[in-house]
Simulated scan of single mutants.
Amino acid sequence: MTSQLNSIPQVSTIYYKETGVIWRLSNYFLEYIPFDHTNLVFCCIGTDRSTGDALGPMTGSFLTQLVSFPFEIVGTLDNPLHALNLEETTNTLYNSPDKPFIVAIDACLGNANNIGEIIIHPGPLYPGKAVKKDLPPIGEISIKAIVNIGGFMEYNVLQSTRLNLTFEMGKVISRSLLLAWHRYNLKNNSNYNTNKN
C-alpha cells in the first residue's frame, strides 16, 4: 500500500460543476483508491442535523443505494458517523483482523472562492476541526467537500449552508466513486482476457 501512496499526487482539487466532473473525479479516485484492497471501507462523516455537515452521511446514503458498489459504507443519513460515535467506530474498524483501508469523506469550510471544490489527498481527515472539536484522525485517503466559508461562527455557517449544495456535491462524489469502481473492473477484465489469450 505504501508504494501506491508514494506514487500518487499530494492533493487533487476539482469544482463540482466543472464540465466532465464525474469522469475527471473518477480518474482521481482510480489514482488514489486501491479498489483491490481486501477490506476497503468508506467512512462518510457528519450529521443529518446540519445542512452543511450532512455532506458525508448524504454521500453514504447515495453509495448504499448503488447495488453494484460492493464496499462497506459507514455513515448514512439513517445511521450517521459523527462526533459521538467516531472514536468507537474507528477503534472497531482498525481492530479488525483484516486491517481496513479507509477512505474518509467529510464536508469542510474554506474561502468564499473555493466553495464547491472537492479535494482528494493521501492521509487522514481531521473531523470537527472547523468547529474546534478534538476528534481522532481517520482515513488513509481523504475526500473533502468545501460547502461554505470558514473563519467565523462555524456552527451557524454549517447550519445555514444550502442543502442543495451538499446534495449535489454528495451526488457527484458517489457517482464518481461508482464510475471509478466500474472502470477499475473493466480494466482488470480486459487485462485478464489479454493475458488469457
Rank of each mutant, 00 (worst) to 15 (best):
V157N: 08
T38K: 14
N85T: 05
V21K: 02
V131I: 15
R183E: 14
E140N: 15
G170V: 10
E87A: 15
C43M: 12
I120M: 03
I146M: 05
S174D: 04
T13D: 00
Y16V: 00
S160T: 13
D36N: 14
I149A: 02
S190T: 13
I138S: 07
F35W: 11
Y192I: 14
D48F: 02
N6E: 15
L55P: 00
A180F: 00
G46W: 06
E88H: 11
G128V: 09
C44A: 08
N6I: 12
I173N: 03
N188Y: 04
R162V: 04
N189Q: 14
K171F: 12
Y16G: 01
Y126G: 00
K187T: 13
T89V: 09
L63D: 09
I45Q: 02
N189L: 15
F71S: 03
S26I: 03
V21M: 05
N164Q: 11
M58P: 01
G151Y: 09
I149Q: 08
A107D: 03
E88K: 15
Y192F: 14
N193K: 15
N191R: 14
Y126E: 06
N156Q: 12
W181C: 11
P122I: 10
L66Q: 15
C43A: 15
T161S: 12
Y28T: 13
G20A: 11
I118N: 01
I14Q: 07
A83M: 04
Y155N: 09
V103F: 05
N148E: 07
D36E: 15
L5Y: 09
K196W: 11
L55V: 10
G75C: 07
D78M: 09
D78I: 03
F42T: 09
A145S: 10
S160H: 12
Y184T: 03
G151D: 07
G56A: 05
N95M: 11
T92A: 13
G170A: 12
G170N: 02
T166Y: 05
W23R: 12
M153L: 15
N111G: 07
Q159A: 13
L93H: 09
D106R: 03
N91C: 06
Y15Q: 11
L125P: 03
A107R: 06
C43R: 02
V103T: 07
L125G: 06
I105L: 13
